[in-house]
Amino acid sequence: MENQKNMEESLWDFIDGSSSPAEKARITHLLETNPAWQKAYAAMMDMNALFRETNLEEPSMRFSKNVMEEIAKHTIAPSTKSYVNNKIIYSIGGFFLILIGGILAYLFTQIDYSQQGSITIPSSLPKMNTDWSFLGNSTTLNIFLIIDTVLGLFLVDKFLQNKKDKLKAKSA
């Protein structure tokens, strides 16, 4: 039973053209010499031809007319590339990379490498003595927030501008 399944699997791969070259050579040899494989191959080729002959289902006669009437109400949307400006994506990506890089750099400068942690395993890890207060007060956070707000306003402006252009094009 298992052998039969393996034979069928190998033969389907062979018929579909997805056998490896070595497997292809093995099956070609078997088909030349082995009557059981020859019989199975002939039957599967018949099945394959039969599967290819199947009829397609047909929609109603009005189908293409309905589709054309429907698409007359629509316009082709501009390509995603045309309204997703790569410069904006890169700017946002760059901003966050700088933000993460800045925070990491700050953290590393705050690590007190001279102290050992109270936990013994692993004893060699430095104890982190980080001052997080910069996030709560100061200009650093305010600057980040301002940049975020400006980028947000920039994106909203871009979105509204696109909408306005579309409306103009439609009315024209």
């Binding site: 289902e57 189908f63 589709v67 429907e70 629509h74 082709i76 949307a77 501009p78 390509s79």
Partner: peptide, 21 residues
């Protein structure tokens, strides 16, 4: 058949709208 026709129509409308992609 009814559902298939509705879906097929929807497919062609979607394809038309996003053809630029």
């Amino acid at each position: 058949r009814e559902d298939a026709e509705e879906v097929a129509q929807d497919v062609f409308v979607k394809a038309y709208r996003s053809l630029a992609d």
